Simulated assay, not measured.
Amino acid sequence: MAASTSASSRPRRVVAEMLIVLGLSLGASAVYSVVAIVNAATRPEPLGDQSTALNPSLSARPTFDLIYQFLAIFFDLVPVVLVVFLLWRVTRPHLGDLGIDFSRAGRDSLAGAGLALVIGIPGIVLYLAGRQLGLTLNVVPAPLDTYWWTVPILLLAAARAGITEEVIAVGYLFARLRLLGWGTWTIIVTTALFRGTYHLYQGPTAFIGNFAMGLLFGWLYARGGRLMPLIVAHFLIDAAVFIGYPWAAVTFPALFS
């Protein structure tokens, strides 16, 4: 009887654990994102006339802006540490349940760079198309020349996004949803929908683009079981957005206005 009770309670514990992890991380972002797009969609002005800021300043005082930016990145990575703790194996590879090991760092980096090109270029086209159709908010980048530490902080922010999203939205959710008996394609589609949802604050085209990215990343992870190429690709994409986009917005204002 005790064994039966333990077996029947395990799925409930897995679901409870998932809700806690997501509530501390990307799940909260998804809720805020839905509220943000509903707020934007119910305003008098069209979505295309509204803006959202990327990596905004957190204080008018430079020293405290740096402190707040660093602390935000640090504490956003704490749920990743929680996931690592929950899925850590005693035997090597310690993070095998997350598809993380460093045995093929060079190949994973090259694969990630190629994947960044495959995802990044269509992403730019989709954003510009969304702007032309009035379906995407104007994404306002942080200026690159504000402080000496602006670019390093933006690179850390790109690393934070790549690590957090791929570890939690792919590695962790795949591991836990498999425990619940979900099929591969059900997991791929569900995690892709989740990825699109927490980007919805930028507009419907951002949801579509990130949903497509989630499908590709999920399929690649299910096929190869390696998370490192996805983390590298995500980092490179966000680094290009955070640093390359502000330069492009200033250089080609008519295109990005």
Rank of each mutant, 00 (worst) to 15 (best):
A41Y: 10
V125T: 10
Q202Y: 01
I124G: 10
A60Q: 15
L128F: 07
R92M: 13
L179H: 13
F235N: 08
F64M: 08
G214C: 01
S25P: 03
L117F: 15
F207S: 02
A212G: 13
L87T: 14
V241C: 03
H94Q: 08
L87N: 06
F75P: 02
P44W: 09
T63P: 03
A254C: 00
V140S: 02
T197R: 06
P46W: 01
T42L: 04
R176K: 15
L156Q: 08
D101V: 05
S257P: 01
T150S: 09
V81F: 15
W185M: 12
F102I: 07
R13N: 12
R13M: 11
Y201D: 01
W148N: 08
A248W: 08
D108I: 09
F85N: 07
D97E: 10
A111C: 10
D65N: 15
R223P: 05
R226N: 04
G203K: 00
G114D: 14
L98S: 14
A129S: 08
N138W: 13
L173R: 03
A72L: 06
L110M: 10
V34L: 12
F70L: 10
N55C: 08
I20Q: 05
L22R: 04
T52N: 02
P152V: 09
Q202G: 11
N210K: 02
T52C: 00
F211W: 02
Y68W: 05
A2H: 11
T91G: 05
Y245C: 01
A233L: 02
L173D: 05
P204A: 11
Y68L: 15
I237D: 00
R89A: 14
M1W: 09
P253Q: 09
A249C: 13
V21P: 04
F194I: 00
S257L: 02
S103I: 05
L58G: 14
L220H: 05
R10A: 10
Y198W: 14
S51H: 04
A158W: 00
L154K: 09
